[in-house]
Simulated scan of single mutants.
Amino acid sequence: MSTSTLKSEQARFTDQDRELILATQEGLPLVSDPWGELGRQLGMPADEVLSRFQHMQETGVIRRVAAVPDHYKLGYRYNGMTVWDVSDDAISTMGQQVGDLPFVSHCYRRPRHLPYWSFNLFAMVHGTSREEVEHKAAQIRELLGDTCSGHTILYSSAILKKTGLRLRKQADKP
C-alpha cells in the first residue's frame, strides 16, 4: 500500500469510528441486536454501525469481529501447545491440514532455532483432561506421518488475560 493510499485510508477513520471502537473494546452488547444497541448508545442508525465496522474491516483498521469464549468456563482446563518438527518441504501442506482439524484452535509456522529448538509447526489444542489433549495430539501425529520427526506438548501453567489494542478516550490523553 502506498503512503498516499495509507493516508487516504487513515483520513477515512472518523471520530464516529473511534467511538465505535471505544464502545466495543470490552465486547459487543449481549443483546439480540448489538448493532442497534450500539447505534442507540452512540446516536446513529444500526445499519450505519454495521457498515462502519465492515469498512474498518475492509480497510484493515480491525481484523475481525468474533466471539471469544472463555474456554475455562466451558470446562476446557487443559491447554496444550503441540509443537512439531515437520519437514520443510511439507510444512505448508501439513500446516494447513493440521489447522483445519476441528479441535485445533490455532496453528502456525515458526522458525527453528537449531540446535536448541527443532520445532517449526505449532498447534494449540484444548481439552477437559490431559488425556484428551494427548489423544488429540496423537491424531495430529497420525496425520503428519513421515513428514514429522518429533514433537512435544507444552501445557499452560497460568491463565493470561488476552486483549487487543485499547484506545483511550480523548480526555484520557496525556
Rank of each mutant, 00 (worst) to 15 (best):
Y108N: 05
Y108Q: 07
Y108E: 08
R109Q: 11
R110Q: 12
R110P: 04
R112G: 04
R112V: 07
H113D: 09
H113M: 09
Y116H: 10
Y116E: 11
Y116D: 11
Y116Q: 09
W117N: 09
S118Y: 06
F119K: 11
N120D: 01
N120L: 01
N120R: 01
N120P: 02
N120F: 00
A123E: 02
M124A: 13
M124E: 14
M124P: 05
V125M: 06
V125L: 06
V125G: 05
V125P: 03
V125R: 04
V125K: 03
S129N: 12
S129I: 11
S129M: 09
R130P: 06
R130F: 12
R130D: 11
R130W: 10
E132Q: 15
V133Q: 06
V133N: 06
E134F: 10
H135E: 15
H135D: 15
K136C: 04
K136V: 02
A138H: 03
Q139S: 07
Q139L: 09
Q139M: 11
I140H: 01
R141H: 13
R141S: 13
R141W: 08
E142I: 04
L143F: 01
L144I: 00
G145I: 00
G145R: 01
D146F: 02
D146L: 04
T147G: 06
T147R: 07
C148E: 09
C148W: 03
C148M: 14
C148Y: 03
S149L: 06
G150I: 00
H151G: 08
H151F: 13
H151S: 15
H151E: 09
T152E: 11
T152D: 09
L154E: 14
Y155C: 01
S156F: 07
S156Y: 06
S157D: 13
S157M: 13
I159L: 12
I159Y: 14
I159R: 15
